[in-house]
Design a protein around this nucleic acid. Structure first.
Lengths: 347, 347
DNA sequence: CCCTATAAATGGAACGTTCCAATAAATCAA
DNA sequence: TTGATTTATTGGAACGTTCCATTTATAGGG
């Protein structure tokens, strides 16, 4: 049932009565061939069910047309949105992104990166897995393949990163909670081995500092960056002697978890406890109550990352500027009305 | 900054003072080479920062080690779970799955499939986009590349499909609703151009038939298979003169939408209106109220699909049996207590 | 009518691997 | 010692493309 030996450019040449070089030219859409010849060749291609062998082509050509996208957690819809943004710009450039999942596992990540390199990708967009070793990208850089980090970065790396302004986002959100009249604040979820965590927590702390929330009234609970993690964080925080009345969550998944835990306790997110998320995933808007969250323009960051990559490939460089994306606080229902009457809202 | 010409097997040979053939043998882990030689070669490989060129290798070798996974909607966490299951088995077989998203767009799907073929994938696991034309896989089959459909199938295709027992799942769920005492039932979401839809709706209708729900008391509302779609379905259904009191939803996303719409109307899912989902995504358990749903063992189906693919590759065939995965109803809170007192639950 | 310029098509070498057949070195039986 | 056997290693052809340098055909200018 399987067809005989795969058809090659030579088979087409024979079929169309031209030389292999001519076929190659047609394949590349060269203007040198006579239109009628091109038509003839294209028909032959169709007839024999030819499939182009990009591996063979890349043997001679400089660059391939595939870039690899290595994601630490595909089950987070956030990354799917990021991928969508990238695909838009790559598609226009005739480039196909291949996605691979590392499931937050550095070993798996190593394998995946190796495989993509062997496949001859023109570039790599990576959201590094937690615990990625500093040297993990040394060989790739040495090979001259451009790498861009998306959303996450490595502490001491020279690799350009595209990420939202985490610090500012956290500051804005915290400011909002304080403006709502809250005085005992929590930061929920995430763990300190992530640069992103440092940035977001940093923004939270700076806002507390600037707006007069004493250290004693700040509750910081690390935890998994998932619904489950969020639920755990809330339980931990409410068990303290002076529990917080509001929380900035590491991301939306944590925030959803917090809201679930509240409901289980018959508390209402918004009126009884204020919750702010981070990332503003599509779901935030449709939750009940709708989640106030820091919007990071995920798809936009994806586009940006793709553009940077394209530029790097073109200019054959392995260096580029970092890019910090603008953020904005999207106020919805999860922080309720103002606690004291002192302030209007700060949208 | 970018390194000089990429190192090849010949550079390593020179460095290690052996022939290229020896290097090749080492690369393939052949037992023919003397251990000390192997060590010497591996050191050279490390020293020059060599990266294996799989494209060149595939020129001579029969099969590549990558399989393509083409997904219609990466933003649905369901597919991420499917991917996770596959990755487990592929990883053990030394195969790397590359994922591409078609965003439910047949044109994009065509491009993606073409690109994967050109890349020389050993096989393709596909969840076809809505509106895929019957002939879309003709060329791929002709090229002898094995294809497996996951979750979705095409109406008249000979391509093996791995899917849950949609009919039975829908039947079970409907039976459950009826056992709970509901008599006016709805089927929400999906559209009739999907085979899956036919199957699920079929199970629903058969249960209605068998358990004595007259046609007049069945409400069928097609809609987008998303939260938004679910919200719309509920609104439509409640606007009828004799609105249903319970709904089986095409999938969990639709069910979540329905529950949201209920809350907006100050109705309680469970007590005021019963909701059953389909797929049992991770989120179903954590929702409030927790969603009763038909569990399809997503990761298990992924594993199965991967196994079938592996078998097909090994036996160089393009044919295999369909596989229908077992389903089970997971009863949680979204259908509330029994409506009438006549029956216990049917877990 | 010849020479040159342009357009279209072509053959051959090269790309980095694998694999076969062949060689070289080491071991063994007699 | 010699031939046969086993163990390690090797050169060369092949894989399917691209690209350069040619060749061939077509047209234009004087």
């Amino acid at each position: 049932m399987a067809s005989r030996a795969k058809a090659t450019i030579l088979d087409i040449a024979r079929e169309a009565g031209v030389s292999k070089s001519t076929v190659s030219l047609v394949l590349q859409g060269s203007g040198l061939i006579r239109p009628e010849t091109a038509v003839k060749v294209r028909k032959a291609i169709e007839d024999v069910g030819y499939v182009y062998n990009r591996g063979a082509a890349n043997l001679r050509k400089a660059h391939s047309n595939v870039i690899g996208m290595v994601i630490n957690d595909l089950t987070n819809p956030f990354f799917a949105e990021l991928a969508v943004g990238m695909e838009r710009v790559f598609q226009a450039a005739g480039i196909v992104p291949f996605i691979a999942n590392t499931a937050e596992n550095p070993v798996r990540q190593e394998e995946v990166l190796k495989s993509m390199m062997e496949q001859g990708v023109a570039g790599l967009i990576v959201s590094p897995a937690r615990g990625t070793t500093p040297g993990a990208f040394r060989r790739i850089e040495a090979a001259g393949v451009p790498v861009v980090f998306a959303m996450r970065r490595l502490p001491e790396s020279r690799i350009p990163a595209i990420a939202p302004d985490n610090h500012r986002g956290a500051y804005l959100a915290t400011e909002h909670l304080i403006a709502k009249g809250h005085r005992r604040l929590a930061f929920f979820g995430g763990s300190s081995d992530l640069v992103v965590y440092q940035e977001r927590l940093g923004g939270f702390l700076e806002a507390c500092e600037a707006l007069g929330i004493p250290v004693a009234d700040r509750t910081i609970v690390e935890g998994e960056t998932s619904r489950k993690g969020g639920m755990a964080c809330l339980e931990t925080a409410l068990a303290t002697s002076e529990p917080p009345t509001a929380a900035l969550c590491f991301n939306d998944a944590v925030a959803f978890g917090v809201m679930l835990a509240l409901r289980r306790r018959n508390l209402e997110a918004g009126s009884d406890f204020a919750v702010v998320g981070f990332d503003d995933v599509a779901e935030a808007e449709h939750y009940s109550p709708a989640l106030t969250s820091v919007a990071v323009d995920t798809a936009g960051l994806g586009e940006r990352a793709a553009h940077v990559m394209l530029k790097m490939i073109q200019s054959r460089t392995t260096r580029a500027e970092d890019h910090i994306g603008a953020v904005s606080l999207v106020v919805r229902e999860s922080c309720g009305q103002n606690r004291s009457s002192q302030l209007g809202d700060a949208a």
